[in-house]
């Protein structure tokens, strides 16, 4: 299991659950700093037909982070083969709105708000 963990956040792929978990406070500076997380997401999507990204414990994601997530959604949409779904939380304000916007990029993106 590949895992990136700092004091502020953790990101890991659980192949058994076909799930990538992002949790904590993601405030990396610039799109380049997000590359390791983008790589983790893309690698996970390659390994599974149906990939779930669990964000419900990701309390904060800055603008570079949402850009990275948007680009990830576009990549998966264009690849056609992978089914993608996001799990968020109704309690986290940014997830309620921004995840819906990502659905505009990929209409068959599945979003579940816990």
């Amino acid at each position: 299991m590949k895992k990136i963990e700092t004091e502020d956040y953790k990101a890991y792929f659980d192949p058994e659950a076909s799930q990538v978990v992002l949790a904590g406070f993601l405030r990396l500076s610039g799109i380049d700093a997000y590359q390791p997380i983008m790589d983790l997401l893309l690698a996970a999507a390659e390994q599974t037909e149906s990939c779930t990204v669990d964000l419900h414990e990701l309390e904060f994601l800055n603008s570079s982070g949402i850009s990275m997530l948007s680009m990830f959604v576009v990549r998966i949409r264009d690849s056609v083969t992978t089914k993608l779904s996001f799990v968020g939380s109704k309690k986290v304000l940014w997830q309620v709105r921004s995840l819906k916007n990502l659905k505009r990029l990929m209409p068959n993106l599945e979003i579940t708000l816990l």
Binding site: S67, S70, L93, W94, R97, S98, N101, L102, R104, L105
Partner: peptide, 17 residues
């Protein structure tokens, strides 16, 4: 266009948050 709009709204939401 969607990403720009998402970013703007996301920025505003972060402000609010």
């Amino acid at each position: 266009e969607i990403i720009v709009q998402t970013l703007m709204e996301h920025g505003d939401l972060l402000d609010t948050q």
